[in-house]
Design a protein around this nucleic acid. Structure first.
Lengths: 193, 193
DNA sequence: GTCTATACAAGGATAGAC
DNA sequence: GTCTATCCTTGTATAGAC
């Protein structure tokens, strides 16, 4: 197995497990085992160990979500785009388990973010940047659609908070229902420029 | 030290650490050390170990927040009450560190909830019940103020999601600012019966 | 009720052969 | 690039004295 193949497999597995189960709950052995990557290769590819893995995982997660958001915003108005995003998230929780696992790698970012706040500063920063990255995408779209600067900022922060919180409720209830409730109030929320 | 004193000290310390740092990140030794409770007493008071401690901590957290919500709702209309709650939360993040520590025991419930979803079913259930408990408080208040049943339900779920998500953003940014952004859009959100 | 000592597993990480 | 073996620390939990 060549360099990039196993490195990538390890990293994607780590991203999924960190996001889904959490940073502390995920062991290096588990990552290695589930990735199916060669056993001796972990510390070759990631010399700084678990923290390096976490920071790279955060970047992966950030970009996956950012791409998804930009894609939605390109073809729809703010209300529709945000609702599409929530619909997609809700459906993940209703899908079969194997499919869930695959998608969950990009979904519950909040768990890692909360944990990171008390790990190293580098990890905290990576999470902070992620939220700012997503926020900027929202802000830009909302301003394009005529929202004031202040309103766009408040709404963007609130939308991200709602979605992250909604994901936590969905995990806890093992159901996409909470995300659909959030989806339902999006028109009201965004009806105030 | 008598029975109840050390039991309570252990439990309150556990609640704070679990909520703030997470379930997996918190060790039994740390709980013992920070609580200042007698070293041999932990498994005497909590024979089922860490999980028992977690479930009892979840109950503590649930009731502290529920009492706070009910108190706010008793003296104010929905918009004002929710804004007061967010203001209080935001101020915690601006207060001095020692005071933060004390309050944080009731604040970042979402971290434990997300972790619990993949621990034992008993822990997951305890989190689920907590969210339902809070939701009922919101729903009742909103219905009293003329919101339809459906709208009250969607709004309640969304408010909880927003607040939990807002707390995660606040932790990540080490600032109460995100919670104030959320506070700012509450009037818009609740202006639709 | 509380203490000390200890068992036992799992965690992250490194060394050195290949 | 990968493997095996190993180290050290930490974590949970128990036993048995006091």
């Amino acid at each position: 197995m060549n360099h990039n193949q196993s490195r990538e497999k390890i990293l994607l597995t780590a991203t999924r497990l960190f996001c889904l189960r959490g940073y502390h709950a995920t062991g290096m052995n588990q990552i290695l085992k589930e990735s199916g990557a060669p056993k001796g290769s972990l510390y070759y590819h990631f010399p700084q160990g678990k923290e390096q893995l976490a920071i790279e995982a955060l970047t992966i997660s950030r970009n996956l979500v950012a791409d998804k958001l930009r894609g939605n915003f390109k073809i729809a108005d703010p209300v529709t785009a945000v609702q599409q995003h929530l619909q997609m998230l809700a459906e993940i929780f209703s899908s079969e388990e194997r499919l869930q696992e695959e998608w969950f790698s990009i979904v519950p970012f909040g768990l890692m973010a909360a944990e990171s706040a008390f790990e190293t500063e580098a990890m905290r920063k990576a999470c902070e940047e992620t939220f700012f990255c997503w926020e900027d995408i929202y802000i830009q779209k909302l301003e394009e659609h005529g929202y004031s600067e202040d309103m766009a900022k408040s709404l963007s922060t609130s939308l991200i908070a709602m979605i992250e919180g909604g994901i936590i409720l969905a995990l806890t209830q093992k159901s996409g229902q909470p995300l659909l409730q959030v989806k339902a109030i999006i028109p009201n929320l965004l009806n105030c420029k």
